[in-house]
């Protein structure tokens, strides 16, 4: 039986915080796409996998620095996101959301195959080459992977939120997301902005991929974490960007503590807990905690 002491609680809560932000960053891509296309992008998990292997190959095989690896992962993610919009979402515009969901499921396997191609003989479990560094804050030990994950995930969420709130481009993307028809009438370049949103979602997946890989290493089944992050998105409400931080943190806590407390009795319960949480949220609050309540004046 595992005992929770002040020391283990501090360690676990810190790790929950790190994983929570990583989950929030991973879930961001779902939210951005949902806002513009009112559909769930099931290819996002393997898009992250593809970006993670890109980062691994760039940083180990090519020996480039971490900054270059992040940039490469973001670029691959952005290209994959834009391709999804042009090749799948655009032709299916105006069709029921289920058509797009099914089509992105097809893309899920395409991205997985691409990841395998890029990985080549590295298609195994590996970790990113990180500097050895540790710092101690009381009982909590912080290493390079924690710092990288915190920095990338936190910075990413803040950057995307700021883009949507404070820049004209971001506000225009929100306008298109709310009402593409009205936006077209007022002359907004709807197609370009929709594609850009998908590309940003993909780039966010790429950056989040490196944050995730820093914590968990790169492995062929890495996409499972992203499917879990969908729970964070749903918890936040699929169209809320600010709420995703809280959704991620709740998921991080549930994940960390269910693994820690129940891991010895029920191995692998951490994953199940995430999906139980998702199921519960869908039952109680179908639009999530921060999901937009449609404004209706009578």
């Amino acid at each position: 039986m595992v005992v929770l002491t002040a020391q283990t609680a501090a360690v676990n809560t810190f790790q929950a915080l790190v994983m929570g932000l990583v989950f929030a960053a991973l879930g961001l891509g779902f939210n951005i796409v949902y806002r513009v296309s009112k559909s769930i992008n099931l290819a996002h998990p393997t898009l992250v996998l593809l970006a993670a292997y890109t980062a691994l190959v760039v940083s180990t095989r090519l020996g480039a620095g971490m900054a270059v690896a992040v940039a490469a992962a973001a670029a691959v993610g952005a290209a994959a996101g834009a391709a999804l919009e042009v090749l799948i979402a655009r032709p299916l515009r105006g069709r029921p959301p289920i058509a797009l969901i099914a089509a992105t499921l097809g893309a899920y396997y395409v991205f997985k195959a691409l990841a395998k191609m890029i990985a080549g003989d590295m298609w195994t479990t590996a970790s990113l080459p990180l500097p050895t560094f540790t710092a101690r804050f009381g009982p909590v030990v912080v290493d390079a992977s924690d710092l990288l994950a915190l920095g990338l995930a936190g910075g990413l969420v803040a950057a995307v939120a700021a883009l949507h709130r404070y820049t004209r481009l971001g506000v225009a993307m929100r306008a298109v997301a709310e009402d593409p028809y009205g936006a077209a009438a007022y002359g907004l370049p709807v197609r370009m902005l929709t594609m850009l949103s998908w590309a940003i979602a993909g780039a966010a997946g790429g950056v989040a991929a490196v944050a995730l890989a820093a914590k968990t290493g790169v492995e062929p089944s890495l996409e499972v974490y992203v499917i879990e992050a969908l729970a964070a998105s749903l918890l936040a409400g699929l169209d809320s960007i600010a709420g995703i931080v809280l959704g991620g943190l709740v998921l991080g806590l549930v994940y960390q503590y269910s693994n820690f407390l129940l891991g010895t009795i029920l191995p692998g319960f951490g994953e199940a807990a995430a999906f139980t949480l998702m199921l519960f949220v869908l039952l109680v609050k179908p639009y999530g905690i921060f999901g937009t309540e449609r404004i209706e004046r009578v």
Binding site: R168, V171, A172, R174, A175, E178, G187, P189
Partner: peptide, 14 residues
């Protein structure tokens, strides 16, 4: 969902 100001900003972007 946008404020009056943001409505104006969004269209100004175009």
């Amino acid at each position: 969902e946008l404020t009056v100001e943001e409505n104006i900003e969004a269209v100004s972007y175009a």
